[in-house]
Design a protein around this nucleic acid. Structure first.
Lengths: 194, 194
DNA sequence: AAGTTTATTGACTCGTCAATCAACAAAAAA
DNA sequence: TTTTTTGTTGATTGACGAGTCAATAAACTT
């Protein structure tokens, strides 16, 4: 049965399964066998392709981060002007996709991982820098010299609002999350409302 | 050797040891034996007093939360007036104590726990409600009808700034965290600077 | 003194799991 | 066609860990 060129297919399946299992259990306390089973293969094969559990976690983290990045980039393509771009970033950050159980589980556990696994911390830092850079680009025309400070606050606010909305219980409300952030933003710009 | 009245002493020691071990490992992946050993007793005794690992985690969470609450209450006693009280809350939230490795570890892992353990979620909600109530009390004189929205944003911002500062790498800088939040606050009040 | 409650642990059970390996199967290269 | 590379798994190893239990001991009660 063995067809060639399976490696990328298997790896992708394992990454997806890893994220689903983290979401299911809510923690990194998932076994390689669980993941492999969900991905439709033996645990031995998972080890064969990834070498170990931590490598699987990191690959999953990269995947979640890159999905988020793609969502933001896609949203930015559809709009024009600083205010519109800011709104697009917010909507993408608080989209239903990002509040799915497994994505929330992934993020929270990546924070935990970032405490002790340098590569995880690095990936998180990359994400934060990119977000900051996107925000700065929008904010400079709007608040000029205060852009740096506003971007720092806005980035942290996005994380904090996401955290609270994700852990609030009940159905997360991306719209409410966007609104909370806008309350902040409105006051940061002199007189221009979005 | 057995002296009577050991229960509270043992429990307190176990709670402390639990927090230290979570900080050491950065995760909830700590064994009862590790905790018990650090607390100077056998693992059987830990089970005897707490019944299981999850109960120990929840007790640890209650402890961290109550320490934070006490710190805020203490800081509030020393000041007067809404602005001063706000500053006190911020300083307490970003105090060096809260950036100690084991406290950061506890918070991050409590977030993870809150996904799946209802009691953990409840405790987190209690903390957030209390913070909100404290903020509201300060904000009403300052921003009146907008107090609700500002308190929501401010609460999330505090969480987000804490998260970033804690995971940033290097020595966390509580002062910078306070400053970031103040950038937000200043603009939320009409014209009154702290 | 006899009985009860509280404190305490070593040893054990039962289960789990990451990682390895030998072996088998099929495609590609030689 | 033989050989090599790639894909794949069942079985095994070796370790660890949560929770239980029987047994011991000191302190209180009657």
């Amino acid at each position: 049965m063995p067809k060639l060129g399976m490696e990328p297919i298997r790896k992708a399946a394992l990454v997806k399964a890893t994220i689903v299992e983290i979401g299911r259990s809510g923690s990194l306390d998932v076994t390689v066998s669980q993941i492999a089973k969900r991905a439709g293969m033996s645990s031995a094969l998972a080890h064969h392709y990834f070498g170990g559990k931590e490598a699987m976690f990191l690959a999953a983290m990269r995947h979640v981060l890159s999905l988020y990045g793609a969502e933001v980039r896609g949203a930015l393509l559809a709009v024009d002007g600083p205010e519109q771009r800011l709104m697009a970033i917010l909507r993408a950050s608080f989209s239903p996709a990002n509040f799915r159980r497994e994505v929330v589980g992934a993020w929270l556990n990546f924070y935990v991982l970032a405490q002790t696994v340098p590569e995880a911390r690095r990936l998180l830092a990359v994400y934060q820098r990119r977000l900051r850079s996107n925000l700065l680009f929008c904010l400079r025309p709007l608040v000029d010299d205060r852009a740096g400070a506003v971007a720092d606050g806005l980035g942290a606010l996005i994380d904090g609002v996401y955290l609270r909305e994700a852990l609030k219980g009940g159905t997360p409300d991306g719209g409410a999350a966007v609104a909370t952030v806008l309350t902040y933003l409105d006051r940061q710009m002199k007189g221009a409302g979005a």
